[in-house]
């Protein structure tokens, strides 16, 4: 996780995100041009999923980190590319890479949910508690996914679950993704205090409306420096870390 005061890194992450998004749009245009309705409907659905974090930011007043947006778009793009180029069927371990990236994405979304709970209710998660929930819920989602493949094959005649070896391999790949995200979350929680986390995730509040809803606010023992005020007034930090400290 990159702290929000690292403006240069955030700029770099934005470039990556928009590049991946552009690639996605190109795939959609190609499918639309060819009139392949079986695929472009799913691509439009996936693009709508990619845009959900922006809607979440707008309506919740909570910052959705760019690295998580990148992982969301990348996991969906890998799936689209895998079907488009038939890589799922021709490249041996392509499926596993897709599973790892997707499970990292899900684990980060769970981490974000835990942060939301922490900030909204003012509950402090211990890092081992957060790690436990990130791992246990991501793995349960992953196992449910594998179970669902098996269930669908049995009752609806699909062919998702190839064999037990492949299923176990997928589950291991998912678990590895969960462990990677949990390790990063643990590192982040140990490094940042409650006030830092609030600064990292609570958006700029121009109308003071969002302030009342948060249980933890970055207002105690803290002041806006002149440099930060200047940066905010120049629009360098829209939704910047110290914007809510001004009053």
């Amino acid at each position: 996780m990159v702290p929000r005061e690292s403006f240069e890194k955030i700029k770099f992450l934005k470039i990556i995100f928009y590049s991946l998004f552009l690639i996605y749009i190109l795939y959609l245009l190609y499918d639309l041009f060819r009139g392949d309705s079986g695929r472009y409907v799913w691509t439009i659905f996936a693009i709508a999923l990619v845009l959900i974090p922006f809607a979440f930011e707008k309506y919740s007043g909570m910052y959705f980190p760019w690295e998580i947006k990148i992982i969301v778009v990348l996991s969906l793009l890998l799936h689209t590319m895998g079907e488009f180029h038939r890589w799922y069927y021709t490249l041996t371990h392509y499926d596993k890479i897709s599973h790892i990236i997707s499970s990292i994405g899900i684990a980060y979304l769970i981490f974000l949910f835990l942060i939301l709970i922490e900030l909204y209710y003012g509950l402090k998660w211990k890092s081992n508690q957060a790690v436990f929930f990130i791992i246990i819920i991501t793995i349960s989602f992953a196992l449910y996914w594998e179970w669902w493949e098996l269930f669908s094959d049995h009752y609806y005649g699909s062919k998702f679950f190839w064999d037990m070896q492949d299923g176990i391999g997928d589950a291991i790949a998912n678990s590895a993704g969960a462990v990677v995200a949990a390790w990063d979350a643990n590192h982040y929680l140990k490094r940042r205090s409650e006030v830092d986390i609030a600064k990292d995730f609570i958006m700029q509040d121009e109308n003071r409306w969002h302030k009342i809803r948060w249980g933890i606010l970055p207002i105690e023992n803290d002041k806006v420096t002149k440099e930060e005020k200047k940066r905010i007034s120049h629009g360098g930090a829209k939704g910047g870390p110290t914007a809510s400290l001004e009053d």
Partner: peptide, 11 residues
């Protein structure tokens, strides 16, 4: 029920 419990218990 078995499949649902995988996800419902941790939640």
């Amino acid at each position: 029920i078995v499949g649902s419990c995988i996800i419902l218990i941790p939640l």
